[in-house]
Each structure stands twice: as C-alpha cells, then as structure tokens.
Design a binder for these strands. Structure first.
Length: 309
DNA sequence: GTCCAGGGTATAT
DNA sequence: ATATACCATGGA
C-alpha cells in the first residue's frame, strides 16, 4: 500500500504550520503551499523513503494523506505512520492547553490568532541534537545553510519519479566518519564541527543510547547529555522539545524566547534567564507549547503580519 | 561600519 | 563563583 490517511486531532492549522516554515527554513522539506503539499525523505529503519504529505480536510476536521514513492510492508507502513504522527504532532489535544493559556490576557490573544498551531518535531533524536548544536548562537538562516551543507556532504540521496533529488539526514555512522577538516570549508566553526562529530561518535560507540532516553525523565536526560562537550542545558531542552515532543520544556536561555516575552508582555526590558523561569512557572505543565506560541508571536512580527485587535 | 542571531567553552580574575 | 573573549556568517 502506497497511500494512506492519518487523522489529526483538531484544531490543526496547516496554514500556520506553513507560515512557521517561512521563518524556520527546513532544508529537508520541499513545500508547495498552494497545494498544501510537503515532500521529504523519512527513514523507515535505515532505508530512506521519499514521502508526500498532503493536508486534507479543514481546521476542525483535519487529516494527512500520505503517499510513498516505493511500496512498504505492513510493518514498514506502521513505522512510517508512527514517525509522521510524531513529526506533525498529530495526537496533541490543544483545547485543555488553550483553556489554561486564556487565563492570561496577553496569551489569550495568541490562542485566538494561532489556533491550531503545533510544533513540527524532528523525526529522530540524532538529527534533532545535530540540528540544535548547529543552531547554537547563529541565526536561523545560517543554521539552515549549514544543515543543508551537511546533508549534501553526508546525507543519502533519493530521487523522485522525475529525477528530482532529495536528501535524507545523515546517519550517526556517516557523521562519525567525518573529520573536522571536511566540515570547516562548509563554514562550520572549529568547535561546532568538533561537537557534532564527537556527538555522532558517542552514539556509534554506545556511550549514548538514544533509545533509552525515551524511558528517562527530562531532568535525568539533561544531566546525562550535558556531560558531553558542546551540549549545554539549552541544547538538551531543545532536543527534548523539538526531538522528543516533551510538553513541559522552557529553554530559558533562548534569545528568541527572551525577545518573545519582551514583545508579548510588552515589557520595557528583555527578561534574563531567571526571570523567564519565574514567568514560566505558571505555564506548567505545558511550557513547551507556551514557548512555541511566544516564539511564533516574534515570527508573525518578522513576517509583518498585522498585529492588532 | 556595528550589532545581533533559538549558546557553549576556555580562560582569567 | 562570576566576567569576558571567541566562534563564523548574514541580515538589519
């Protein structure tokens, strides 16, 4: 079976998802906004499978229609479906979270404006961490450029029926085989190149077991991974949030979050990390979703969306 | 030209 | 313990 449908939990705004992609470029995704269509490669096991994801239905009755370029066994299709449900945050019920967010007037505006917005998660924890390390300190455009160059250097190529090429994110094994000298010409800093390669080697050597992370608590994972050089608290918080889909993370060191809180709460100064953690206490146990909506307020301003009412 | 981007580490006090 | 320099580049 090459085509199947995945029902989504309403409300689900595919439009907001596409708008977020404008300010958060993803080199793995081909986007055809006019058709509500995305294409990218997902790995099933280790095999890269080119997949077409089309949004069908509407905000309050949404679904995804999936089509793969090669045929899959029943077990493979089940695995792909699980991955896609995770990536598109298909099962999160936003309504109880909205109830809580509406308790703050500054956030009630965001609930109304961004109804149905969810996070797009990373499809696996290796790429989640690598992309987060790449994103440390630099702007999103440059980060996307670096990720694209890493894909070109070490990713696996897949072609569609017309010979259009797509790249699957490199495996830990292929990144572990790279040298710093290969990443430097791609404009990775010396340190960043070392961090990424060291991380891939820790996985290949079995010093880090990504599967085991799914059985661990947030703080346990933070303690475990920040022991690695180049991986600080912010990086693990992002991996927990974007990679694992954990609901209650607050990357308080994040510059975007600082700017967002400054904007949304209309403060006269940017809050520091301690201040953000204090404000975020009342967002528990949904701090990840609150963070997303705060970030997207900044995104809307960058896109020059009219910000009124 | 300057400053800032979804930070983290190394070094100096 | 806390402060500062540094990374590498693009866009405002």
């Amino acid at each position: 079976m090459r085509t199947f449908t995945i029902p989504l939990t309403p409300p689900y705004s595919f439009e907001r998802l596409l708008q977020r992609l404008q300010t958060h470029p993803d080199p793995q995704l081909e986007v055809q906004p006019e058709n509500g269509l995305l294409r990218r490669v997902f790995r099933v096991g280790t095999r890269p499978v080119l997949t077409r994801v089309q949004f069908v239905g509407e905000l309050e009755k949404p679904a995804l229609q999936i089509e793969t370029s090669s045929s899959l066994s029943a077990a493979e299709q089940q695995e792909l479906e699980r991955t896609i449900r995770h990536v598109f945050s298909a099962d999160l019920d936003l309504l109880p979270i909205y109830e809580q967010m509406r308790e703050e007037p500054e956030l009630a505006v965001l609930v109304k404006r961004f109804r149905g917005l969810r996070l797009m998660h990373d499809s696996d924890l290796f790429q989640s961490m690598v992309k987060t390390i790449i994103g440390q300190q630099i702007n999103l455009t440059f980060a996307a450029n670096l990720t694209q160059r890493l894909l070109t250097l070490a990713g696996d190529e897949v072609e569609d029926e017309n010979g259009v090429k797509f790249l699957a994110f490199p495996t830990a094994e292929s990144v572990a085989r790279l040298s710093v000298e290969e990443l430097r010409p791609l404009q990775f800093s010396q340190r960043k190149a070392e961090y990424i390669i060291d991380y891939a080697r820790a996985i290949v050597d079995g010093k880090v077991d990504l599967e085991r992370l799914w059985t661990m608590e947030d703080e346990e994972i933070i303690a475990h991974l920040t022991a690695l050089r180049g991986i600080g608290r912010w990086t693990v918080e992002c991996m927990l949030m974007f990679g694992m889909g954990r609901p209650d993370l607050l990357p308080a060191a994040d510059i975007g979050l600082r700017n967002g809180i400054w904007l949304v709460y209309n403060r006269d100064t940017k809050p520091d990390e301690a201040e953000i953690r204090r404000i975020g206490e009342r967002w528990a146990p949904w701090r990840s979703i609150y963070s997303l909506y705060i970030w997207e307020a900044v995104g809307a301003v960058k896109r020059k969306e009219v910000w009124e009412e």
